[in-house]
Amino acid sequence: MKRSHIIAIVIIAVSIAALVGSLYDSSTYADLAQAMEDPGTEYHVVGVLDRSQEIIYEPSLNASLTTFTMKDLSGKTCTVHLAKAKPQDFERSERLVLIGSATENGEFHARDMLMKCPSKYNEENRIEG
């Protein structure tokens, strides 16, 4: 066996491992209903902040816990405990991606959250006449 063949095999093996590895480490997008069915498993859940409910952040009690209600894209709502300080301008957020898992009692524990604000990059510039 030539050395180049060994190298080729190693390369192919590592590439496949990297591909499988990236899929293995990847999380899954789900809606709240799916996350609820499978408590304890980590999901990415996309949704919006339910502004009709209160955002509870009591930093003097715990500086890294924010509790709020999220509505997912199918319209289901759920109480979310986020293990982070309340992000600046959370009220203005347009879209949330929660990273975390559901609990047995139907709440969602988010370890992290991505937030898109409406105007950060390309806001629709609608000008009313």
Binding site: P59, S60, N62, A63, A83, K84, S101
Partner: peptide, 22 residues
């Protein structure tokens, strides 16, 4: 890291990042 406040881990074991101080 804030040791004074409530430990978040009793809520969820993934919550161990008490990284902010008040």
């Amino acid at each position: 890291r804030n040791t004074k406040n409530m430990d978040l881990r009793f809520l969820n074991e993934a919550f161990d990042n008490n990284e902010d101080i008040l």
